[in-house]
C-alpha cells in the first residue's frame, strides 16, 4: 500500500504534466514569450495546481503525522539569500532555452528521444555540481 501510493502519485503527476501541456517544450517556451506569440496556458497549470494543493496541504498538515511516515519533512530555511535567487535565476535561463523543467524532462524519458536523454544526463550532471560545491 505504501509503495502503491508513491507510484500512483508519480503517475498522476506525470499525467497532469502531459494533460496540461508541460511536456511540450514549444508550449512552455511560448508561455515565456510574453512579448511575442504568448500562450498563457501554463499560468492555468500553476493556478489549477495551487487551487488543489493550497487547501489540500492545509488539511493534511492539521494531521499529527503523514500516513506512512513519522513526521512531515518540510523545508526549514527562511533565508532569502544569494543562493536561492541565483539558483532559481540560472534554472529559469535553462528552462527558457530548452522549454523543459525537471518534472517534464523525467516524464519525457519514455518518449524515447535522444534529445531528452542528452537533456536529462546534463541535468543530472548539473545537480552533481551542486552536490560537490554545497557541503
Amino acid at each position: 500500500m505504501k509503495y502503491i501510493a508513491l507510484l500512483l502519485s508519480g503517475i498522476i503527476f506525470g499525467v497532469g504534466l502531459i494533460l496540461s501541456g508541460m511536456t511540450n517544450p514549444l508550449k512552455v517556451q511560448n508561455f515565456l514569450d510574453l512579448f511575442g506569440i504568448w500562450d498563457p496556458s501554463l499560468a492555468f497549470v500553476m493556478g489549477g495546481a495551487i487551487f488543489v494543493a493550497l487547501p489540500g496541504f492545509w488539511l493534511v498538515q492539521k494531521q499529527k503525522k503523514p500516513i506512512f511516515n513519522e513526521s512531515f519533512d518540510l523545508p526549514k530555511s527562511k533565508d532569502l539569500d544569494f543562493r536561492l535567487i541565483f539558483g532559481a535565476g540560472v534554472f529559469g535561463i535553462g528552462w527558457g532555452i530548452g522549454g523543459l523543467c525537471p518534472g517534464p524532462a523525467l516524464t519525457s524519458i519514455t518518449f524515447f528521444d535522444i534529445g531528452i536523454y542528452i537533456f536529462v544526463v546534463s541535468m543530472l550532471f548539473g545537480m552533481l555540481i551542486t552536490k560537490k560545491i554545497v557541503k
Binding site: 502519485s9 493556478g47 487551487f51 506512512f68 511516515n69 512531515f72 519533512d73 523545508p75
Partner: peptide, 25 residues
C-alpha cells in the same frame, strides 16, 4: 491546462498526506 494542473496539485497533496514530503521534482 487547468485540469492537468489540478492533477499535479492532487499528486502533491497525496505525497504530503502519505509521506509528508514536498513534490518537488
Amino acid at each position: 491546462s487547468l485540469l492537468g494542473g489540478a492533477l499535479i496539485g492532487l499528486s502533491a497533496v497525496m505525497l504530503m498526506a502519505t509521506y509528508g514530503k514536498i513534490a518537488g521534482i
